[in-house]
Structure formats: structure tokens, C-alpha cells
Design a protein around this nucleic acid. Structure first.
Lengths: 188, 188
DNA sequence: GAAAAGTGTTGCGGATATTGAACATGAAAA
DNA sequence: TTTTCATGTTCAATATCCGCAACACTTTTC
């Protein structure tokens, strides 16, 4: 029987905490995750160093994402500067989001540089929880709809609203649209 | 030789991207991380599913945290907004602040478009109460000092810090500097 | 040109993760 | 009590990772 390593033990305790918080037994989680219960037991007791794939499958049963799972490993010194290339890029369709700070844990707000390609459209969006968001158009044009109000914004124009109001962004005109936005608290 | 699995391939490409962004060869990273270069090669080409421990050691050489590494797996729902129009202008010296929303009452955050004229300098600033602020440079260059850390930022670069840390902004180079920033809660 | 140093990619053997089944314990039901 | 079901742990066999070394290739140096 293998001895418990420190890192493995920490990881195991993290998993156990999350599993119990979800109200699942080792076997229940094992069934949902399609992983043998023995694997979960060994990981939780720090007796093995799971592969990324195995851990990912297990976490899907909780469910929780890999990034959130490892968020407990946060570094102590505050990261202040982010080079343009290292902004975390989140692409989805014709919309590119460059996020300041790849991990949002413990932060009060999220700042994004958004680029809408020609024809990009977010569709209708509404958040169920309380949040506020706003931004300034840097270049290009975008049609913004919030509740019953609708307006086309150009460079220098701005917006600010409650995230719970249904809202939608649609790129307009012949060039891509760039926006810098912020929201609090951080949400997607 | 093992075939490439889809998840492993995605993970490998993510590692390759980060490694190249850091300007490291497989061998250079291998040496820093104290891991054989072959392991890095196999992971990047999606031919193996590394253990958590192995991946963690490798990431330490870049360096990047586990949570940040997996942040690309965050499924993006939607991020959207609404239009306001006139930005309240607040001039002070060589610094012009255009504030989104003339009235801050009841708002969770403040968004500003800042323009630093040639030679503009905020001097040393520190807020006594808890707040966070961040921003993205749109054009020009600015030297940002936060606590003991100092860096010159250009277009696309970003920053984020706790407002209680003493900080200072100083315009650099031959052109005005424009920044879009946000802070929460709203403060001056 | 040849040599040297760089790059990423295999091959192989030992170490280890992973699996299904057996085990131990405790709580609830008959 | 005895049975039944649930919990988490451990075992032995197999699949896989991991580490060293060698390989093929490109770029730089002499």
C-alpha cells in the first residue's frame, strides 16, 4: 500500500469536501462519473495521484469544473499586470472575449475586452442573479437592446445596466466592434 | 504508440500554447520543471493523459496555476450590455476622466474612459477603504506603479489591483494615453 | 560544406494509476 | 438476533504513465 504524499492528500481532501458538500457517497459519485469507487477512495485518502482525465470524469459527477476545483491553490501575491497576449481569450462564435486575470476567484469584478466580428450577435440574454455591467465602445458599431430600449452605439458611447434585465448585443456596420466592459460581481 | 484522445489533445494544445507564449522550448520547460522533455512532447501531442502531479510540476515552470490552466474549460454562457450616452467629463490637470453614468448613487461600480495628456501624472495615490480597480490600455503608453511593482503598459495590456495598495499612473512616450478602467465600489 | 547545437518525436523498462472484486464496519429492517 | 443494505477500505491484475536514451530533422556556427 502506497504512502500518502502531501500534494495528493491535499487534493484528496478537496475532493472529499466537494463530494460531501454535494451530498454524494463515494459509490453514488462513482456511478454518476462511471469510475470505480475504489479510485475515488484512493484519491480521497491521498494514496494516489490521479490522471487529469480521471479527475475530470469524477468532477463531472459532482459537478464542478477543473478550474474551480483547483481554485483553492490560489497564489498569495496579487497579480497586477497582464500583457496583451496573456489576457485569457474566450472565443465563442464571432465574439472574442479577452479577460483581465484568467481566474476570477476572490475578485470583486471582471474586466473584458470584447471584439465582435461582422455579423456577431449574442442573442437574448438574462441573468437570474443580481449583477451590474457596463462598458464603453472603442471602435465599430453595435446595436444594444436592454429591456424595451434599443440603440446603436459608436466609438466613445457607453452603457450600464442591471444584468437581470434581458439584453442583447449585435454587431452593426462594416467593421468589427471593440468594447471594453466590466461587471460586478464576476459572472458569465 | 498510443492514439490521441480528444480531451488529451485539447489539453495538449492548451499546454503548447502556454509554453510557446512563455517563449520556452519543450526542453527548456522540461529543465525548469524537472520533468523529461519526452513527457511534455507526449502530452502536447495528445498521446498521454498526464497525472495531476505531473501537470502541476510542468505548469510551475511556465509558470501558471492549475486553476488558470483549466480556465479554458469554462463554458461561456453569455455576457451582454446596454447603451447610455453622455459621459460626464471630469478634468483635472493633464488627466481627463469620462465617467459612464453621471450619477453613481446605487451603482456597484464605476467605469471610466481616462485620457492622459503628455506628461500627465497622478502622483502617489492610496485609498483608505476597500476597493478594487482594473483597466485595459487602448492606446499610448503609461507607467503603472502598484506597491513595489512597476511596469510600462501599451495597447491591449491590462492591470488589476487592490485600491488600498499605493499606486501611481504616469503617461509615457510621444502620444496621449487612453485607458478604459473600472472600479468597485465607486470611489475617487 | 561539415560540425555543433537546437528543435520535437519515438522505444523501452520500471513505476504507478486504474479496475473489479473481496473485505470490514455500522446502521436500519425483519 | 439475524438479515439486509449502506458506507469506506484494501487487494491483485492489468493498463498506463514516466523517465532515460536514442532518433530524425532544422538552424546556427565554424
Amino acid at each position: 500500500m502506497k504512502n500518502a504524499n502531501h500534494d495528493d492528500l491535499t487534493l484528496g481532501l478537496r475532493l472529499r469536501t466537494l463530494r460531501e458538500r454535494a451530498g454524494l457517497s463515494q459509490r453514488a459519485l462513482a456511478k454518476k462519473s462511471e469510475v470505480p469507487n475504489s479510485t475515488i477512495s484512493l484519491i480521497e485518502s491521498g494514496k494516489m495521484n490521479p490522471s487529469v482525465g480521471a479527475l475530470r470524469r469524477i468532477l463531472q459527477g459532482i459537478p464542478i469544473g477543473m478550474s474551480d476545483f483547483f481554485s483553492f491553490e490560489i497564489e498569495t501575491e496579487q497579480t497586477v499586470f497582464y500583457a496583451a497576449e496573456e489576457l485569457t481569450e474566450i472565443g465563442k462564435g464571432g465574439l472574442s472575449l479577452r479577460q483581465v486575470g484568467s481566474n476570477l476567484h476572490g475578485r470583486a469584478m471582471m474586466i473584458l475586452q470584447e471584439t465582435y466580428d461582422l455579423g456577431a450577435d449574442t442573442g437574448r440574454v438574462m441573468y437570474g442573479h443580481e449583477a451590474e455591467e457596463g462598458g464603453i465602445v472603442i471602435s465599430g458599431r453595435v446595436e444594444v437592446t436592454v429591456g424595451e430600449q434599443r440603440k446603436v452605439l459608436g466609438p466613445g458611447d457607453a452603457y450600464y445596466f442591471d444584468s437581470r434585465t434581458p439584453h442583447r448585443f449585435r454587431q452593426m456596420g462594416p467593421e468589427k466592434c471593440r468594447i471594453v466592459s466590466a461587471c460586478t460581481p464576476p459572472t458569465f
